[in-house]
Write a protein that binds this DNA or RNA. Structure first.
Lengths: 155, 155
DNA sequence: TCGACCTTGTTATACTATAACATATCTCGT
DNA sequence: ACGAGATATGTTATAGTATAACAAGGTCGA
């Protein structure tokens, strides 16, 4: 499945608005002001933000926040499927299609740092087959590819 | 490709010896005493070790080591393909078949912490297909699955 | 009203990783 | 022999990432 992704020109305002609307719908009141604000921060670009990046932005806005504030909000968003943690970067990005996002994979551009989310079908993949053969029960899979996005390939 | 893996009973002494012999062959003199010792530490079990775990073991042996010592040795081993970094765990495991290890994937048991390495074929996978469609050039892929190994599935 | 649960605030600390500089050794070409 | 460059190690200090633990207020139903 191919996203209308961060690497292409797109109407980012509506991209962001759609994700936020879905978040409101999924969470209702549980999307408290801090949590919602953190999600907005993640939605500002397709670049992953570290917890301390988020923290700094909150502080810039006058919020006297300590690290747990950022981590809690991010953990919540991840738990709700509204954001994803990128292990390679120790950072987080918003999910742009929380509705259908079972087994996400990520393409991380090492030049511009933008991250694209792309669907995948681990149930059929070589990994799932190997796991089955070993009797290993997969609960969750991290798939992150690093490389160059189209815009960063030409010097 | 299915390894005769850490989740099965196996002759670990020879498992370890084989990996070490291959490492000697690959590196020659560059496998200095510290580096070799760190590899041996990683080979002691199929559980991933953090850099500070390694450091602690070195210190237990009388080596007055500082963090960079552990990180340097680990970085070297990873660069030579003799060890792998597990992003999910911020930890490292030895590679048990450095000879043919192009695109490894990992199965991490959340109960016993053992890690199995399994080959995969990303060139054909859904991820590679999506990347190609987006014009994204993949240089390196992290694939890590978390779950339960056979031994840990029965309570 | 009480208690269970959720959320946030706050302090302190643990864990992970690297920058930067110093020293030693080897090897290669001149 | 000499010096330049590459490699490896020692050491100090610090940067970056993450969580434990306790306090306090809010809501909601029994």
């Amino acid at each position: 499945m191919i996203p209308s992704g961060p690497f292409e020109r797109h109407d980012h305002a509506s991209c962001r608005a759609r994700a936020l609307a879905q978040a409101d719908q999924v969470c209702g009141e549980r999307l408290t002001p801090v949590r919602r604000r953190v999600l907005e921060l993640l939605l500002e670009s397709h670049v992953a933000l570290g917890a301390y990046d988020v923290l700094e932005r909150l502080r810039d806005e006058g919020h006297r926040a300590q690290p747990p504030v950022a981590y809690r909000a991010l953990d919540f968003l991840v738990a709700q499927g509204l954001a994803h943690r990128i292990e390679r970067l120790n950072a987080f990005i918003a999910c742009h299609r929380p509705a259908d996002c079972e087994a996400p994979a990520f393409l991380i551009c090492r030049a511009c740092n933008r991250v694209a989310e792309t669907g995948n079908t681990p149930k059929r993949g070589a990994l799932a087959r190997d796991a089955r053969a070993l009797g290993f029960e997969i609960e969750e899979t991290v798939i992150e590819a690093r490389g160059l996005c189209p815009a960063c390939q030409t010097p």
